[in-house]
Amino acid sequence: MNVMHPAIAEPVLSLRGLRKEYRPGQPVLKDISLDFAPRGVTAIIGPSGTGKSTLIRCINRLVDPTAGDILLKGENLARIQGAALRMARRRIGMVFQEYNLVERLSVMENVLSGRLGYVSPWRAFLRKFPVEDVERAYDLLDAVGLGQDFANRRADKLSGGQRQRVGIARAIMQEPALLLADEPTSSLDPKTSVEIMELMAEISGTRGIPIIINIHNVDLARRYAARIIGMTGGDVVFDGPPEALERSHLAMIYGGEGWQE
């Protein structure tokens, strides 16, 4: 049933035999091997608890894989530690379901947090970020549709959709080679969800940043992703363009057919 994805010549990210066991002998990820092209949106769909979130968190090592390789432009992230791992993380932006902003800080400080891997500690401590970083942060506030008036608002005063826009700006602030998004729309209403997906697809296109998105909503995945990966029980069971995703595939991914219209 697996629709083969055409081979990618120069992948930005390659996973080789990626395996994660929280408890020995009970793998959550069963030797996943995937290549990701250096552009476009890839959506990972699948039921809750199927390892989507673990997969995405293994990529930037928020979760340590049990076995396998994570090759980001040739560098194996599974094998590095400490400073080298921090350097690698700077090149991977991440957007979260619960936004994960620092609530008591201003929008500007949250966006500038994306540079914390680059600026010196005393500069960040004194809030003296380099001028070009501040310039870029203002530009990004415009680009994500918030505008510069938001700079000094506290993050806890924003709505869910506005917070997610700040989260996206923070991730792009890193100038990442890859953007990960873990259920970025699951805490948002349907209209805002569409707006956020629209924004991410646009950013991916205009800035040439490849995005990997975990998402529950199959319709949104179809609408915005160029490639869909279906997971179930820790395995990849579908990998192909949205046009190739059929009812039978969805039945295999989520189980049963009764829920489908």
């Binding site: 620092v102 947090s113 923070r170």
Partner: peptide
């Protein structure tokens, strides 16, 4: 969550302390 987000940006621990923990525990 916010601590995890700062870790994901590649921030060193000193920065996570100053920009992640401190704003949360300041009051």
């Amino acid at each position: 969550g916010p601590l995890e987000a700062l870790t994901a940006t590649g921030a060193p621990r000193s920065m996570i302390l100053v920009k992640g923990y401190w704003p949360q525990v300041e009051p």
